[in-house]
Design a protein around this nucleic acid. Structure first.
Length: 108
DNA sequence: AAGTACCGTTAAA
DNA sequence: TTTAACGGTACTT
């Protein structure tokens, strides 16, 4: 039984994608974080595989998933500075949302 | 610091 | 069908 929903993805991948979608905005989690969440604390590598495939790069914030060292994961070395840039933007957005909830004043 | 073992998917032979 | 490779972490040396 693999991929009872969309063919091409397995239950494992769905679990990884789901866990990645649950990562709060402006925050980052490690592959192990996802691995433990899906019930495979030792499958951090397999998690990286599912993210590497990332069938929905627009919906799945794979950039929020980094290594436990704080280094950006990626393949064969590193991805691109875009990842850090993207994370910085998300952080800004999260900060803005926090301000709105704090006093709902005009930000900028 | 370096090497090894673990998990799950994909590509190739 | 079987083998090789990719990708991150923890443990051991």
């Amino acid at each position: 039984m693999s991929g009872k929903f969309s063919k091409g993805l397995t239950d494992f991948e769905w679990a990884v994608l789901k866990a990645t979608l649950e990562i709060p905005l402006g925050e980052t989690r490690s592959y192990k974080w996802v691995a433990e969440r899906i019930g495979r604390p030792q499958a951090a590598r397999a998690v990286g595989q599912a993210l590497r495939k990332n069938p929905y790069p627009i919906i799945i914030p794979c950039h929020r998933v980094i290594k436990a060292n704080g280094d950006p994961g990626g393949y064969g070395g590193k991805q691109d500075p875009r990842k850090a840039r993207l994370l910085a933007q998300e952080r800004d957005i999260a900060a803005r949302i926090r301000l709105l909830g704090a006093r709902g004043g005009g930000g900028a």
